[in-house]
Design a protein around this nucleic acid. Sequence first.
DNA 1: CGGTGTTCGTTGAAGGCTCAAGCAATCATG
DNA 2: CATGATTGCTTGAGCCTTCAACGAACACCG
Lengths: 166, 166
Amino acid sequence: MSDTEFSTVPWLSSDERRAWLALYAVATRLNPTLDAELFKQARITLFDYHVLAMTSEAPERALPMSELAARSNASLSRLSHVVKKLEARGWMVRTPSPDDARVTTAALTDEGMAALEGLAPDHVRSVRDLVFDGLDARDVSDLERIGRRILGRIEPGNSIVEDNSP
Amino acid sequence: MSDTEFSTVPWLSSDERRAWLALYAVATRLNPTLDAELFKQARITLFDYHVLAMTSEAPERALPMSELAARSNASLSRLSHVVKKLEARGWMVRTPSPDDARVTTAALTDEGMAALEGLAPDHVRSVRDLVFDGLDARDVSDLERIGRRILGRIEPGNSIVEDNSP
DNA sequence: CGGTGTTCGTTGAAGGCTCAAGCAATCATG
DNA sequence: CATGATTGCTTGAGCCTTCAACGAACACCG
């Protein structure tokens, strides 16, 4: 592969290529690795966990499906399937919103909250093991900066990109 | 969530938490986004593409399945299914190795190489759009450094972690 | 040799995810 | 109000991935 422009294609430079291979590897391996840990523990997916976590942090532990989808980095379709599963498990409930009959509010049950609290310590430990134990303070701030920049290009207007809350 | 230790759980600090949310979002959205582009173009997956690309860069355009799996960030099982599919499409061939009868060598066909060359420009452009157009030179080197550090924890002993070739 | 364990790769079933389609409620317009 | 467009969400079909089980070839060792 060339280091410079190649015919009409703006090819990747060697620096970019190395960075891309590293990013692709992380993007491909990180979630499945965390997935496997959670699945062994509780037959739950990393995505499931994240849905529960996002819901738990919302006021009333409830959110409209659309909002929850945005916070969970998921399509509405994917979320719908997953919440149905979590509802069958007794961890969430869906109720039609009184304000707008199109809106479904997804809420965490007490059982769901308890399950999340039971899972959290080990999950946080996994995240620490896989990510933060290898990084110093500068890495962490660089990671946030770069992550947000990439996110801004993947999905312009995503809340996480602008959000600066602690 | 607390900023400090919480009972026996080493919780994430607020800096770490923001970095984690950004990383998780990227890890969750990047591949599917690139996936969708490639799928529209050629009914092919990002993973398929990467398998073809890794093979194309090997001497003789051929690699043992195990080695290809490592370079593709995949389980042998996943690779096996995918190569079977690519073989059905005429883009790859599998042949038993003469040296070791356990080993299967996966090779790119001429059609596969041609397909890859046809796909590459648009794919590289997508990667550039989503990732590198938002980053400056410092970001790129930071990204590589951090990516490798995380990879080193996900899979100790991975070649990409130590590799320093251009 | 013969046994034991390891490596390489494949397979089928189970479940996850995406896409396209669809329905119902609401909004916007005239 | 009608009518058409948009929003919010759900569903089912089909592909992809994982997991567990397996078989075959090699390596080690007494």
